[in-house]
Amino acid sequence: MKRSWISRRNFVYRTVGFLLTLLAGRGLAQARLAGMKLDITFEFVGGGFRYRRPYVAVWIENAQGLPVRTLAVWFEQSRKGPRWLNELRRWYHNNELNETVSGPTRMPGRYTLSWDGKDDKGNPMPQGDYYVCVELAREHGPYQLFREKVTLAQSPFQRAYNLSGEKGDLKEVSLSYDRQG
Rank of each mutant, 00 (worst) to 15 (best):
R147V: 02
G17H: 10
Q144Y: 01
R52K: 15
A24D: 11
K80G: 10
R32M: 13
G47F: 12
E99F: 07
F75H: 14
A63H: 01
E96D: 02
Y55F: 14
V58G: 12
Y92N: 08
T112D: 03
T151E: 02
G141M: 05
T100G: 14
P126I: 13
D119Q: 14
Q30E: 11
L136I: 05
K171V: 00
G17N: 01
V73D: 01
P67D: 00
V73K: 03
M1W: 06
T21Y: 07
V16K: 10
L163M: 03
L66M: 15
N95A: 08
R32L: 10
L97W: 01
S78W: 03
F44T: 12
A72L: 15
V132T: 04
G25E: 14
Q158P: 07
G47S: 03
L163V: 08
L136E: 01
F146H: 05
A137N: 04
D178V: 02
R110L: 11
Q127S: 15
R32W: 07
V173T: 00
A57L: 08
W84L: 14
P67M: 07
D116R: 13
P142N: 00
G48W: 00
A63Q: 07
G141I: 03
G141A: 01
P126F: 07
R138V: 10
G48K: 09
R89G: 08
R147Q: 05
R110A: 07
R52E: 15
A72I: 15
F157E: 09
L85Y: 03
Y13N: 04
V56G: 01
E139A: 15
R179F: 08
G65W: 12
T21S: 05
I6V: 10
W74P: 01
L28M: 05
A153D: 07
R159Y: 11
V150D: 05
E61W: 09
L175R: 03
K171Y: 11
Y13A: 11
E43K: 05
W115P: 12
T105H: 07
H140R: 09
I6D: 09
A137I: 01
T70V: 12
A57M: 13
R89N: 04
T70H: 06
G165C: 13
F42Y: 15
R110W: 10
Y111G: 08
G81I: 14
D169C: 02
Q64L: 01
G17V: 14
Y130E: 13
V132L: 08
F146S: 00
G46C: 01
Y161T: 10
A29N: 09
T100P: 09
Y130S: 05
D129R: 14
G181L: 03
R110S: 03
R147M: 08
A72F: 11
